[in-house]
Design a protein around this nucleic acid. Sequence first.
DNA 1: GATGTCGACGTGG
DNA 2: CCACGTCGACATC
Length: 168
Amino acid sequence: MQGTLQIQTSEGTFCTAYSARGLCSLNFPGRAKPTATEVSQQVQHWHRLTSKTLERMLAGKPPGELPPLDLSAGTPFQQEVWQAMSKIAWGCTASYGDLARDIGRPAAMRAVGAACGANPIPVLVPCHRVLAAHGKLGGFSSGLDWKIKLLALEGIVLPIASERLAVA
DNA sequence: GATGTCGACGTGG
DNA sequence: CCACGTCGACATC
């Protein structure tokens, strides 16, 4: 670990941690002690990108340039899931089943859900853009209210069951 | 239609 | 073992 830093936002203080490879974790306000350490120039640069990205997203704008993300902490399966997740564009959504199909394990949707919950970098690795099938909200380990807020910021409107029936 | 139960998957406790 | 951020199939009213 190369260091830990904080980001002050209108929503509270986020905590970040960096490895030699890039950003390796991000915590919502209140989920970790706001400690900070001295860091290298390299990490300071990454942290500027992280802060900027977070601010943009909280302002309802697309993320812009991301710092390198170090997902090597997860198991191979989790890394596959997280990588598939990062490919979901801003303002778009996918279901747990979709992700399972993307990584070639159509029956592993439940495991995908578990992997989403283990995501070390929420928001930047957009776990909130993953909904249950048929546009239902699904769950969110760091608090459903965050998921709702983030979706709203991206202009995503949840389909309603009765609407789907009308279309079909 | 609206419910209820079942099995499949990977990981951590 | 079990519990999870799931899902579709099938069974039954």
